[in-house]
Structures are given as C-alpha cells and as structure tokens.
C-alpha cells in the first residue's frame, strides 16, 4: 500500500520503518530534512509538502507534537486536505485534545477525507519493538482499513469509539500513569525517609493489591536511579494539560490529576523536564527532609 508518514521523530521514525519492512511504499515529508536521512536506501519517496504526500497515498499517518501541529499538517497551507483525494484516510497517532481531534475530523470530512485518531502508549521502546498500545477513534470501516497497518506498529490495537474516543482513552491512560508514577514516588520517598528499604517495600507490595506495572517497571527504575527517558516528564506535563483542559471544558472534578499536574509543573520548572517522568521522585526528595 502507498502510505504517507509525517512526523519522523523519536517515535515516528521506527514506526514508519516497521511499515516499510512490512512491504509498504512510504511517502514522506519532513519540516527538517535531517529527519529523512534514516530513510535513504529504503522504499520511501520524499515529497515537497503534506499535500503531495496526500496525493500519492491511500493512508497518511501523522505523528507530531500537539494539536496546532496536527492542524497545520492536515488543514494548513499545502496541508493534507488540499492534496488528498476523497477516500483518503488520515490516521493521527499524536496525543492531542479530544475536542481538537473531533474538530479536525469534521473539517477533513468536508473534503471526503476520513480521520482516525489513534494515539499510542508505550513510548520510544514500544515504537522500536512494534509493541505499542494503539487506542483508536473513528468510523469502523475506516478503522478496519488501517488496522493491518496499525498492527505492524503495535501489539494491542483497539477501536474505542467515534472520532475523539482514542484521544479520550489516551487521556485516561495519562491520568492513570501520571497519578500512578507520583504515587509510587511518594511511597518510595516515604519508605526511604522512614529509614526503610524501598526495594524491599516494592518486593512485598508486588504480591498484593497495590501491584501495578508502574510499581514494577517504573519502581525498579527509581530504585536503579535511572532517570533517562523513557517518557519525558515535559510530555507528561503536556498530556496532563490536555486532561485538565477537557475537565475544565466539561465541568469535571479530577482532584488527583489536578494535583499531579502541579507536580509536573514543578518538575519542568526545576529544569528536570527532559528526564523520565519518574524524576518525580527526585523532586520529592529535593523538597523533603534529608534521609536519616
């Protein structure tokens, strides 16, 4: 299949390469020509604009930073909408505001272009290992057409509901992981400052109702004091901003997520935003009494 791919960063690059390896012809455009280098010598054609990518592809995948970027790629000057034929399917795998996703979907629909929001969880490691969790929103027919592509990049691919539903699921994911990472950091700091070995606490807790993947994986990385990303703290801050914007728009009370978002503000403001989210532990240590 002719597949367009826009957004060849840490996540997008390995994802696009998985599609090429599976036998698909790639059509690429990148803001920075450097991002195209890893695609020399593979079945990939470079184009001058998103519009041209859209003109050559049946499906275009977008993997960029935030809603304004997705909007520019889809609906801006020389965007996908200006080059795509009716029937084109645009799959946005970025994490953006669900309401923004719905609005982009509606505007593409005016041109006969289908839009599927399909944000992912699993980070750079998940992208490299084609082990991402993909949460999709859109029309079932469009989803079925792109599902085989998504399965080349992810291990678990689920249609959650209508347009925007994938982003809602991703927002839920970020509430759980954000609050979860902070909870583990708080527990470990509590144990250490009480003079108790956090590693032993983790080991004991893994057998009980407090078990979670975050306690297991993120917890181990906290014990190893390995704060390299992973998933960067500033990205978690951005994702929680989306969550809180939606809570504000709908009049929802999310007290834990709101408190967690403030801790991520403190992390980013302290210059720790490039670390993994588990750097929350370092922030707590910094503002707490020294260990005994």
């Amino acid at each position: 299949m002719n597949v367009g791919f826009i957004g060849l960063g840490l996540m997008g690059r390995p994802m696009a390469l998985h599609l090429e390896k599976a036998g698909h012809a790639l059509h690429l455009w990148a803001r920075r020509p450097d991002s195209l280098k890893p695609f020399a010598g593979v079945n990939a054609k470079t184009h001058a604009s998103p519009a041209q990518v859209a003109a050559h592809a049946e499906v275009v995948i977008v993997m960029v930073a935030d809603a304004p970027d997705v909007e520019a790629v889809c609906l801006g000057v020389d965007g996908l909408a200006s080059g795509g034929k009716p029937g084109l399917i645009v799959v946005d795998m970025s994490t953006i505001n669900p309401n923004a996703a719905r609005s982009i979907g509606l505007r593409l629909a005016e041109k006969g272009i289908e839009f599927v929001d399909a944000p992912v969880s699993g980070g750079e490691t998940g992208a490299i290992n084609a082990a991402l969790t993909v949460m999709a929103g859109g029309k079932p027919a469009a989803f079925e057409k792109v599902k085989p592509l998504l399965e080349k990049m992810g291990k678990s691919v689920t249609l959650i509901g209508d347009s925007g539903a994938g982003q809602v699921a991703k927002a839920c994911n970020q509430i759980l992981t954000g609050v979860g990472v902070l909870a583990v950091a708080e527990a470990f700091n509590f144990a250490t400052k009480s003079g108790v070995d956090a590693g032993k606490v983790r080991e004991a807790l893994l057998g009980g109702f407090a078990y979670s993947k975050i306690l297991e994986n993120h917890g181990q990385r906290m014990l190893d004091r390995n704060f390299k990303p992973g998933f960067k703290a500033w990205m978690h801050q951005k994702d929680l901003r989306i969550v809180m914007e939606e809570a504000h728009r709908m009049g929802l009370m999310l007290p834990s997520a709101a408190a967690t978002a403030q801790v991520f503000n403190a992390i980013v403001g302290s210059g720790m935003g490039e670390n993994d989210s588990i750097t929350a532990l370092q922030l707590l240590e910094k503002v707490s009494t020294p260990a005994p």
């Binding site: 801050q237 901003r241 809180m244 809570a247 504000h248 709908m250 009049g251 929802l252 009370m253 999310l254 007290p255 709101a258 408190a259 978002a261 403030q262 801790v263 503000n265 403190a266 992390i267 980013v268 403001g269 302290s270 935003g273």
Partner: peptide, 20 residues
Amino acid sequence: ATRLGVPLPVSAAVGQQLNA
C-alpha cells in the same frame, strides 16, 4: 502555571471545585 513550570497546588484543587 503550566507554561511557566510553576506548581500551584491549592489553586489546582480550587479549580477542581469550580469544575464541579
């Protein structure tokens, strides 16, 4: 607060009461 990287824990909690 998000843009500047400043934690406002009480304001965030009050914001949630306003959402409710």
